[in-house]
Simulated assay, not measured.
Amino acid sequence: MTLPAHRGIQVWREDGAAPDRVAEEVPVALRYNGEPHVVMMCTPSDLEDFARGFSVTEGIVEDVAQIGAIQLRELSEDQGFEMDVAIPQSCAQRLAGRQRQLRGRTGCGLCGAQTLADVLRPARRVPAGVAVAAGAVRRALEALRRQQPLNAATGSTHAAAWATPDGLIVAVREDVGRHNALDKLIGHLLATNSDLARGFVVVTSRASYEMVAKSVAVGMPMLVAISAPTAYAVRLAEDAGLTLIGFARAHRHVVYACPGRVSSAPLGTPG
């Protein structure tokens, strides 16, 4: 991939010009078995992870093992990227029946849905998971601030991170779109056979419907967001048994759904 995730600009101050950076945002066309499906606006990094995560969380495949080769092609003249994802014929036929050939904006939360039935499908139940000390949430938030190089350079990207029950960050993905960042993280975790029942996800955004839905789709038991959730997201979390935390800060957070996984036990020393 030749296109960087950011490009250089100049900032003018009283004492002259200084270099700075702005995040890239490019169209990424997803094709399944050669058939066009959707065009998303993404940061051009970790795109194979994005394809895996999107394919699972949008219900195109039931398991990441059903995804075969992913062919990534950069288009000419800064036109973005095209990815052809190989999936079983049965999945391709089901996808064709849904007639989901759409253009997804960066902030689009229902980019894959054509009907209300697609959006309002019953939530699956997430695993019981493990207890997470309140201090682990704070530890993960503090660690995540230091693990967002693209946002540090540009100030315009979201991050999604996976943390162990004691709050250690083990994976981070960034993107201009909050749900893209989460799909990238999920794609990476699934590809590396991570145990998604043992840990929690942290996102640097609000906890809207699609953030909860994607977490539930792969069995993540806890979602921590630095901003507020929507009422629909809270209802979905309650139906799925997902612990939903919002307004997560260094010294406080709000538990909106399923508080039983949040423990008041003291946090141990990280290993």
Rank of each mutant, 00 (worst) to 15 (best):
F81P: 01
M83R: 06
D84Y: 02
A86M: 04
A86D: 11
I87G: 10
P88H: 00
Q89N: 12
Q89A: 12
C91M: 08
A92G: 14
A92H: 14
A92T: 09
Q93S: 05
R94Q: 14
L95I: 00
G97S: 08
R98I: 02
Q99L: 10
Q99T: 05
Q99P: 00
R100S: 15
R100C: 12
Q101W: 07
Q101T: 08
L102K: 14
L102A: 09
G104F: 03
R105D: 06
T106H: 08
G107C: 10
G109H: 12
C111N: 11
C111V: 07
A113N: 07
A113V: 08
Q114Y: 06
Q114G: 08
T115W: 14
L116N: 13
L116F: 12
A117V: 02
A117M: 00
D118R: 01
D118K: 02
V119C: 10
V119K: 13
L120A: 11
R121Q: 15
P122T: 03
P122E: 05
R125I: 05
R125V: 05
V126P: 00
G129A: 10
G129T: 10
V132R: 12
V132A: 09
A134W: 00
A134S: 08
A134Q: 09
G135K: 03
G135R: 03
V137W: 10
V137A: 11
R138L: 02
R138V: 08
R139T: 01
R139S: 00
L141R: 13
L141N: 03
E142I: 11
E142T: 14
A143D: 02
R145K: 11
R145Q: 13
R146P: 09
Q147C: 06
Q147G: 08
Q148S: 07
Q148L: 07
L150R: 15
L150S: 04
L150P: 08
N151G: 12
N151R: 12
T154E: 01
T154V: 03
